[in-house]
Structure formats: structure tokens, C-alpha cells
């Protein structure tokens, strides 16, 4: 924990994430304008004291829309990562723990999933089952677990090899005990590190989907969606593209930095 505090970069990353989460949670109390309120006389006005980050093509306040957009990014990031981590850990644990035929089937399934471009599958799923925030979360969650499953499986196998030697010396160790006392504590750190990276990845994927018009639908706003609208006005209204893009970049960067420093703390042998 000491290292974590010492590291200014990870600290500011954590602070930024906290700020984004707070902004998302309290968006209705913070923003000056209704994110959906159109003020056509104010169309595409540049950042000013009135509209800190300017307005979009329908005269909506960009800052307000970004605060609400944070809700989408944060919730998609966390929920999708949660689904990813649950599926990935379970498949990895089952495959590694039971071995044999179960391992064979699960790992072949993972190999097959690995052959498909993940983004293609996500596009397909979201497009076919109506693009909305829940489908985006699920689609990202159920397609992004392959890496984690492999890591967890490998970790379980190493632990098992070690513990079986031990078990044979100290008489019977029950399967239950083996699982909770020996295996779980060992796989928990790669899972935590992967979670942080998965949140960042999910936020990136969501913004890509929204940018292609397959993310959350209006009147809901998300960072990727503001960017999609902004791209048509990039010459006239740079603020529509710059700010949401920077928000995505900084948020994802923060999660990745947190993931990296978690890796340093939990697994110091890898540098």
C-alpha cells in the first residue's frame, strides 16, 4: 500500500477516476443545463462563460452532456468488466481445477472465441439485438473474457502442481480447502489487475460502438456519441470532438495506470 501512496501518478489517476465517478453519480445536481434541452439560437457556440465547453449542433450544453455521458461510460465500464471477470474467472478456475475433459472442452471453446475479432462479435450482437446500454454491457462482457480465462487457468495449474506435492505429504487436503485456501488467494491478484484493465477496455469499446451509432441511443448521451455528432462539424466546432475524446483518453488512461500499479504491488516479480 505504501508504494501506491508514494506513486504520484497512480494517485492522480485514482483521483481522476474518483472525480469521474462523482460527476457521473451527481450529474443532475451539478449541471447547469438539461443535457437534452435544445437552444437553437445557441447552436455550435464556442466555449464561453455561459457554456464552458460550448454547445452542439442542436444548441445543447456540451458540459452537461459530458457529465451525463460519464454515467454511461462508467456504468458500461464497470458492469461489462464485472461480466468479463466473472465469466473469465469461472472458466479459468473450472478448467484449471477439474482438468481433463472439462479443461479440454473449455479451452477449445476459448481458442475458438480467440479466433473471432472481438469487436466484430460485439458489433454484430449489438446491431442484431437492438443497440441500448444493457446490450452494450452484455455484448462487451461476454466477448472479452478469453485472456483472463487463460491467465487464471495457468495460475490454478501452477498452484495445483505445488499443492499436490504438499497434499501428498500432509495426508488428505479436501478439495474445498484446496480451492479456498490455496487456489483462490493465488488467482485473486491477476483477476484484480485484469479488472482494472478490463474497465478501461470496456469504456474504449463502448465509445467506439457509440461512435459507429451502435451504442446508447438519443436522448441518452455518451462520450462516443458526442464525438459521432462532432465529427461532422469538426472544422466549425472543434470543441465537440476535442473534449469528449480527451475525457475518454484520460479515463481509460487512469484505469490502465491503476491496473499497472496494482500489478506492481500485487505481483512485484514481474516488471
Amino acid at each position: 500500500m505504501n508504494k501506491f501512496i508514494k506513486n504520484k501518478i497512480s494517485l492522480s489517476a485514482a483521483a481522476f477516476i474518483a472525480a469521474v465517478i462523482l460527476a457521473a453519480a451527481f450529474a443532475p445536481f451539478i449541471v447547469k443545463y438539461d443535457p437534452a434541452a435544445q437552444e437553437l439560437s445557441q447552436r455550435l457556440s464556442a466555449p464561453s462563460a455561459k457554456h464552458l465547453l460550448g454547445t452542439d449542433d442542436l444548441g445543447r450544453d456540451v458540459l452537461s452532456r459530458m457529465f451525463y455521458g460519464a454515467r454511461v461510460s462508467v456504468s458500461v465500464g464497470f458492469v461489462a468488466a464485472l461480466i468479463t471477470v466473472v465469466i473469465g474467472s469461472l472458466i479459468g478456475l473450472f478448467a484449471g481445477y477439474f482438468g481433463g475433459a472439462i479443461d479440454g472442452v473449455l479451452m477449445r471453446f476459448t481458442d475458438i472465441m480467440l479466433c473471432f475479432p472481438t469487436f466484430f462479435l460485439i458489433l454484430l450482437a449489438v446491431a442484431f439485438f437492438e443497440p441500448n446500454i444493457y446490450n452494450v454491457m452484455i455484448a462487451i462482457g461476454i466477448t472479452s473474457w478469453t485472456g483472463l480465462a487463460r491467465i487464471v487457468r495457468a495460475e490454478v495449474l501452477t498452484v495445483r502442481e505445488r499443492e499436490f506435492v504438499l497434499a501428498s505429504q500432509t495426508l488428505a487436503v479436501s478439495g474445498f480447502r484446496l480451492f479456498f485456501v490455496h487456489i483462490l488467494p493465488n488467482v485473486i491478484s491477476p483477476i484484480i489487475v485484469y479488472s482494472a484493465l478490463a474497465i478501461g477496455g470496456a469504456i474504449l469499446t463502448e465509445s467506439g460502438l457509440s461512435f459507429l451509432g451502435l451504442g446508447v441511443q438519443p436522448p441518452m448521451s455518451s462520450w462516443g456519441q458526442i464525438l459521432m455528432q462532432g465529427k461532422d462539424y469538426i472544422y466549425a466546432a472543434w470543441w465537440l470532438s476535442l473534449f469528449p475524446g480527451a475525457a475518454i483518453l484520460l479515463t481509460v488512461l487512469s484505469f490502465n495506470l491503476i491496473g499497472e500499479s496494482l500489478r506492481d504491488i500485487l505481483d512485484p516479480k514481474e516488471l
Partner: peptide, 13 residues
């Protein structure tokens, strides 16, 4: 780290 976190479509834009 920045390259890893940048949304490609935004960079493209």
C-alpha cells in the same frame, strides 16, 4: 500508455 488508452477513432479524427 497514452497510445494504449487513446480511442482509435478519435485519434483518426
Amino acid at each position: 500508455f497514452t497510445c494504449f488508452s487513446v480511442p482509435v477513432f478519435w485519434a483518426a479524427l
